[in-house]
């Protein structure tokens, strides 16, 4: 599984980005840069990552920095999948 591809696919789906996520790279800023990513969307995103990738996120493991960029989110997910 390519974690970056999976994360981008889930981002695109949850935020209804209509394929915009395909042009994202590791340096693409997320939180504060993508208007669709509000606090509710962050929760949906976590839930989708849990359900679709089979990981379990403890609420004290995440903060704003986790969702700062595509790269930070991918690194977080990769670490959870190990």
């Amino acid at each position: 599984m390519n974690v970056t591809d999976e994360v981008l696919r889930i981002l695109d789906e949850v935020l209804s980005l209509n394929g915009r996520a395909a042009r994202f790279d590791r340096n693409t800023p997320l939180l504060g840069a993508i208007p669709e990513l509000d606090s509710m969307a962050v929760v949906t995103l976590i839930t989708s990552l849990e359900e679709q990738l089979g990981l379990l996120v403890d609420d004290d493991e995440i903060d704003g920095a986790t969702f700062a960029t595509v790269g930070s989110l991918v690194d977080f997910v990769s670490a959870k999948l190990v």
Partner: peptide, 18 residues
């Protein structure tokens, strides 16, 4: 669990969700 997390949404980003 996922529903209760909604309440924590804003705090989540500040790392206070627990």
């Amino acid at each position: 669990q996922q529903f209760l997390r909604l309440k924590a949404a804003s705090e989540l980003l500040g790392g206070q969700a627990k």
